[in-house]
Computed example of a mutant assay.
Amino acid sequence: MLKKIAVIPARLEAQRFPKKLLQDLGGAPVIVRTYEAAVRTGLFDQVLVATDSKDIYQIIRQYDGKAIMSQKEHDCGSNRIAEAVLDLDYDIIVNVQGDEPFTNRGDLERLIQVFEEDKDHKVDLASLMHPLTEESEIQDPNNVKVIVDDLGNAIYFSRSPIPFVRDESVDIEFQKHIGIYAFRKKALMEFYKTAPTPLEMAEKIECIRYLEHGKKIRMVKTSNRSIGIDTPTDLEKARVLWES
């Protein structure tokens, strides 16, 4: 049986919405709601918050959660997670974004299932995507788009609309990448040893580095339209959804 851990990388000073993880959502901070959602799935041997913030560390501990302080500065979530699990014995590490408090069991279970069915270890990572239908959503650079091959493996991620539709008679479904993904520990540790690539830095999408180093990312479709809290507007939407 695969040993599984969920790690929530939590950086305090997000560029677009500083201290968003400490904002109130239904009576508790966003990061606490995300941690509780991951624990509530019952899928993991452990759930851990990896953070650069003493405030976040103390709040998670205040709610009887498990947290670890990063000892190094990190430019992406994967590196923060890699440091946290370096000496831990797990087969599958699931990255749950700290600003995704509506993560549900079904989606995480399907990510884990990818590895349970991958007996030949051909898949290095698994992640989620869902269709974008509104033109404003497709054009929004805050929505990372992904294109896949016939097997569902990622070909590329971009903040631009991909593919570019030159022939409008072709029926194309745009897919949004949801920033929740799982990886084999070996793939994560190999990523940790590499430097950011120009494409990764240009797009500000760390998954591109995995692709450039030949890693296979299996994308799993979901109908759940989770709200990632990137802006104050997103937070208001999340509060409405929380109360519904």
Rank of each mutant, 00 (worst) to 15 (best):
V49R: 07
T51Q: 11
I68M: 07
L25R: 02
Y57G: 03
Q62P: 00
P18N: 08
G26S: 10
I56F: 04
P18G: 05
V30E: 02
L22W: 01
L12G: 01
A10D: 08
V39E: 15
L48P: 04
I31H: 03
L22K: 00
A37M: 11
G26R: 07
E36S: 11
K72V: 08
K54Y: 12
I59T: 06
Q15I: 02
S53A: 10
A37L: 10
F17T: 06
R61F: 03
T41N: 08
E13K: 05
F17S: 09
S53K: 06
A28Y: 02
A28T: 03
T34V: 13
G65R: 06
E13C: 00
V47Y: 13
Y35F: 15
Q58N: 15
T34W: 08
K66A: 10
G77I: 00
Y63L: 02
D52I: 05
V39R: 15
I68C: 01
T51I: 06
V49Q: 10
V47W: 12
K66G: 00
T41P: 07
G65M: 09
A50T: 15
Y63E: 13
D55H: 02
G65W: 07
Y35K: 07
L48A: 09
H74W: 11
D75V: 08
K19E: 14
G77S: 13
D45K: 13
P18W: 07
V7Q: 11
L43H: 12
L43G: 11
V30K: 00
E73H: 14
K66W: 01
I56K: 04
P18H: 06
P9T: 07
Q23G: 00
Y35R: 06
R61M: 11
L12K: 14
I60E: 05
V30P: 00
Q23L: 02
A28P: 02
K54Q: 15
A50E: 13
K54R: 15
S53Q: 11
Y35Q: 09
R16S: 14
G26C: 11
L22Q: 02
Q23C: 06
F44C: 12
V30T: 01
